[in-house]
Amino acid sequence: MVEKQPTPLIEIHDLTVAYDKKPVLWDVDFTLPEGKLIGIVGPNGAGKSTLIKAIMGLIPMQSGYVKLFGQGLDKVRDKISYVPQRESVDWDFPTSVLDVVLMGRYHKLGLFKRPRKADKEIAMDSLRKVGMEAFSKRQISKLSGGQQQRVFLARALAQQAELYFMDEPFAGVDAATEKAIVALLKDMVSKNKTVIVVHHDLQSVRKYFDWLLMLNTRLVANGPVDQVFTNEFLEETYGGKLTLLSEVTELMKKEELPNREKK
């Protein structure tokens, strides 16, 4: 008898993404376990945000597939939450904190229906968890950067998902907010949720994450932090070893070469 392998939570196979002919991610292949706080690190332009955008179906893939919970994205959207970069929206939009958090309930509501009392309670509860309940009526244009990030986080919590993707949640937030967010994420993981965070500060990697994905156009390392957060892999991710690769990708852009033979 063959022992049945548990389905991995996330399975990425042969993922390639290109912007205007220049490959940003190349043949990325990995699986990720459940119930971990997972960091994605790599230098600027390494394709960290691109990776989660591709997983969330926001940008087209040149090749490969993504399986979440062993299924395609459309089947499991309800179990997944995505927190975009804070700067990706216009915070001058005329709406209130509570209304933004309520957006996290929309997928459960469906078209036409208005949020009910239960949804409002969930939203308020989420705000409480990020320490923003006092601000629920506040207009979002009046928030500080750290508060904006907390609102986005509360919206994600209101989704009551199993798997969270967060794009640079610590960018431009104050130290107190960063601490509070990390505590919250650890708490979520202890309840067997999985949180995947795009991160750029190497100093805090050991402190924050259980599992690490190191990326520089291709996948450099994937595993428990203790095993992969080593000088060797860091050198490979951030060091000059990959200059040849980046030169080749530049060349491909210039020459408009195909990056994959069409079958």
Binding site: L58, P84, S88, D90, F93, T95, V100, Y106, H107
Partner: peptide, 10 residues
């Protein structure tokens, strides 16, 4: 307000 988020929740 946030078209990417809208897309991810289907």
């Amino acid at each position: 307000f946030d078209i990417h988020f809208a897309q991810t929740i289907g």
